[in-house]
Design a protein around this nucleic acid. Sequence first.
DNA 1: GATGAATGAGCTTTCATTCAT
DNA 2: CATGAATGAAAGCTCATTCAT
Lengths: 226, 226, 226, 226
Amino acid sequence: MNEQRVRRDPEGTRRRILEAATQQFTQFGLAGARVDAIANAAGTNERMLYYYFTSKEGLYVAVLESMYAQFGEREARLDLSGLDPTDAIRKLAQSIWAYFWDNPQWLSLINNENLHKGRYLERSSGLRATISPVVDLLRVTLERGVAAGQFRAGIDPLDFYVTLVGLGYYVVSNRFTLDAFLGRNYAQPQQQASISALHADMLLAYLHEGALASSDQPRNIELDRA
Amino acid sequence: MNEQRVRRDPEGTRRRILEAATQQFTQFGLAGARVDAIANAAGTNERMLYYYFTSKEGLYVAVLESMYAQFGEREARLDLSGLDPTDAIRKLAQSIWAYFWDNPQWLSLINNENLHKGRYLERSSGLRATISPVVDLLRVTLERGVAAGQFRAGIDPLDFYVTLVGLGYYVVSNRFTLDAFLGRNYAQPQQQASISALHADMLLAYLHEGALASSDQPRNIELDRA
Amino acid sequence: MNEQRVRRDPEGTRRRILEAATQQFTQFGLAGARVDAIANAAGTNERMLYYYFTSKEGLYVAVLESMYAQFGEREARLDLSGLDPTDAIRKLAQSIWAYFWDNPQWLSLINNENLHKGRYLERSSGLRATISPVVDLLRVTLERGVAAGQFRAGIDPLDFYVTLVGLGYYVVSNRFTLDAFLGRNYAQPQQQASISALHADMLLAYLHEGALASSDQPRNIELDRA
Amino acid sequence: MNEQRVRRDPEGTRRRILEAATQQFTQFGLAGARVDAIANAAGTNERMLYYYFTSKEGLYVAVLESMYAQFGEREARLDLSGLDPTDAIRKLAQSIWAYFWDNPQWLSLINNENLHKGRYLERSSGLRATISPVVDLLRVTLERGVAAGQFRAGIDPLDFYVTLVGLGYYVVSNRFTLDAFLGRNYAQPQQQASISALHADMLLAYLHEGALASSDQPRNIELDRA
DNA sequence: GATGAATGAGCTTTCATTCAT
DNA sequence: CATGAATGAAAGCTCATTCAT
């Protein structure tokens, strides 16, 4: 767009289409996004879109893949190794929730994909691989917590991961309807911080309950943005 | 369609259109739903849709309103008065989460509305009124729990409500992508029950933590369907 | 509209429909006018329109007839008997041109009818009768002028009538395009008065030219086509 | 249609659409013309119409522009330089009136535009420029006539131009209703010739009246409204 | 690799009209 | 006399896609 256009720039054209498509699909959904609007925003013509991505759906799948790859990369960079298990859980939650607030369009895309019952995700290969490392990281952290007498035993890491993610996801994804119904605007940093603290405390209250040793006092957490 | 058609039946026609529209909008979203498919499914013609609802968007707003009204009615019928505060929280959570599992299309609609940044909800009047009674119910229950020495004090009822709702919402709404990534299918009753138990225990662990008296042991909960 | 509605008022309903239709047809033409807009403006429903006028076209013809009747009545009331022939011509012209300025929608209707090649006028009976008295009046006046030695002889009254009418008609009917092209707004009273004076002087210059004494015989001109 | 179609012919496609649209708009008006009929007559599909002209209205404006351009070109080719002023006026009138008889659809279009209060003409730029040369030509001719002692002085060229044009316009534009009312068919060459002679004589009677010697000053007349 | 031209199917919406009460 | 409900056809327009260069 605002970058110097080169006559022949296959990489650039492909990338610009993908970026424009990401913007359009996350804003309007698969059905609502317009092929010509994407081409336009990418500074190219509709034909190139078909050249690189075969079809609108092919482009949509490519967007899905690229966004999951981004999320996966971010998660993979997370290092909880040196931390006390309780702090590690807080840091993991913080990291994921902050990502959601920074990339709400990612959630839109996932919601859209759920609307389609995950149909397009099936076309992609190797997606499961991108996400599992985080679950492994969590499993190890939970085990470390149990061993340290901080956490209760017998927790299913997958369920716990889903719970942790869901707490952050819901607030971000549903911020508009929550504002409309309840009159609370979670886009405001203060509201964000306070419910995030509640969520973190809740996760840890559960982990600490019935652990060998007694727990820390809940602290407010500040979401640090990448 | 599968009901006996009457020649002149304004009430019925309107209702059949609304039902068909609900089905189509929840399945395909606002952009993806087709007006002629709605008319068809309603056993009438496209013209009547405009006769009663002015436009596709007008119909969409009517669907939104009717679904919120349904949810509100259901919640309003909930009676927690005779219950011990801890049991009351379990029952409230159970009731809401069960509603989500029974009406996943409702969540699709809300996700769609969030995609549109709550734009269409603004056209509706009196929506906040439908939902607030539940929050009041929760507030009273929390106060009762504090008074009984079971719950910690100082909890924001709105944040707690959002948290409770979000725990159930996320799992239902994202069941397809969760299955695709993590390989866990929360549509299976067993998985549903086990994560719901986790969620309920977590809510109560938080409430009990730092309460004056010590808490009950977490029990597995069975979601009872309406 | 702003008159007290009576439950059963056949005359009133019919009249209100006709008035509303006149407004809509003159503003939008036959194709552009909307049946439901007419019914709406008449404060009734579309069905009554069909009850009284059979079809949209039937209503259009009724509007045509009523407007011609009005114009005819106006002309019939014109009394030139006591006047000097020259003054009589001026008064006749004035009267007709003033009618055009006061009822420009009448011209729109006639233009519309010419667009349709007079197709709908043919359905009407007795229209020719309404207009001829004025031509008779003009014929008599011209004869009086000739007898008085004021006017030239040998003028075809019909051609002269058409010329007189056309001079006023064109300026009113084409006021918008004339403004757009030439930058002269004939809706302004001053411009109106000045071109009307030109037209009247021109008619009389022609009539006076060669009065008593013989002048050039009117010559046929051949239009050469490009 | 009746021309050999070429696969790729942007110029031709655009031109064929414009021609077909001219035919349809002049025959049925803006509201009455059908987009698919235009596309059909142009031997293309509706989509191309929007490709080249954005909308039905955009196409209508393009037609307006092209017709005015044609009229302007024709007028611009007129050469009155060698002629006696009186003959020049006759030739100018002849030329314009002949154009009207040869292109009655042009008048329909202008009538339509007046129905729309000149709304679409406003979207066009540079239309005034196309018509003014003729007025200049007329101004010069009138001045030559005055200088030669043939014409009266003090004539407003714009008013005179409007009058000259209007005389021919009215008869062509209203030929159908005139036939219906008065029973005179001006489409017949004989009737055409005879009224055209009247009009030309009238214009010249006015110009000649009071040439050299002073005559009546044109008086403003007040139109008395009924 | 890149682009303007072309397409047919299908979209939402509106039309004049008729039915049933 | 009057009215709300219903209808099929067609309107203007947009869609994702492909052709030809």
